[in-house]
Design a protein around this nucleic acid. Structure first.
Length: 209
DNA sequence: AGTGCGATTGACT
DNA sequence: GTCAATCGCACTA
């Protein structure tokens, strides 16, 4: 889209944990337009988050619904940490832990617009169109080489992976039901940058009221 | 111990 | 449009 100015990932300060909204749906909205920054051995990659989903306590679709397990422990920890899990036995997905310690909630990062480090992303994803590099949670994780070794990473500190802002505030949010779930399927907990071609999901969910 | 099912993707008819 | 790949975890026994 139009709003990719030049980005210097190494100078992008991490988001402050105190600035993260305590309400998980609010955090999911807050993260739209923010940046994911990844440090690779040979440089940085950065991407603008364009699609998120909130997973709440008491939510049957959430991994936290049946209580704390080794896999979902980060969801029950403090906010602003990476919950990385393996889905369908083959795709990793990146979440940001949310809510107070002891409350199992998180925001799934579903899609992003690549800004810098496209060569590094293609090294992990192969030669696909820019639009498809990070369009979907599994693809996003692959592009940023995110695996279980990053589970528990502090996303509010400059390290292998963190959240940042370049000051861009998106004007037009879309809201829809979440993708790919069967339980609690009616809840409007998916948020996206309206009109972005980097958003995943069926077109019907992406046009708006 | 065995079974079933995903917060998905890519290949194929 | 259909479908297989592949594994952690919940559930049954």
């Amino acid at each position: 889209m139009l709003h990719n100015g030049p980005v210097q990932p190494s100078t992008l300060a991490p988001l402050s944990r105190d600035d993260l909204p305590g309400d998980t749906a609010a955090l999911a909205r807050y993260l739209i337009g923010k940046l994911m920054v990844r440090a690779f051995p040979d440089g940085f990659a950065a991407a603008r988050i364009v699609e998120t989903e909130a997973y709440l306590a008491g939510d049957e679709a959430s991994h936290s619904f049946r209580g704390l397990t080794p896999r979902n422990r980060v969801m029950f920890g403090p906010p602003g940490y990476a919950y990385v899990y393996l889905n369908y036995g083959m795709h990793f997905a990146l979440n940001v832990s949310s809510a107070a310690e002891g409350v199992g909630e998180a925001v799934l990062i579903r899609a992003a617009e690549p800004l810098t480090g496209l060569d590094a992303m293609r090294r992990h994803r192969g030669d696909v169109p820019v639009r498809d590099l990070m369009r979907g949670p599994g693809r996003l994780a692959k592009a940023l080489d995110i695996g279980s070794s990053l589970d528990g990473t502090d996303l509010c500190a400059a390290g292998p992976l963190w959240l940042a802002s370049d000051g861009h505030i998106p004007q037009d949010f879309g809201v829809s039901v979440r993708i790919g779930i069967s339980r609690d399927a009616h809840r409007p907990l998916r948020f996206f940058l309206k009109g972005s071609p980097f958003v995943s999901g069926p077109a019907a969910l992406n046009r708006c009221p």
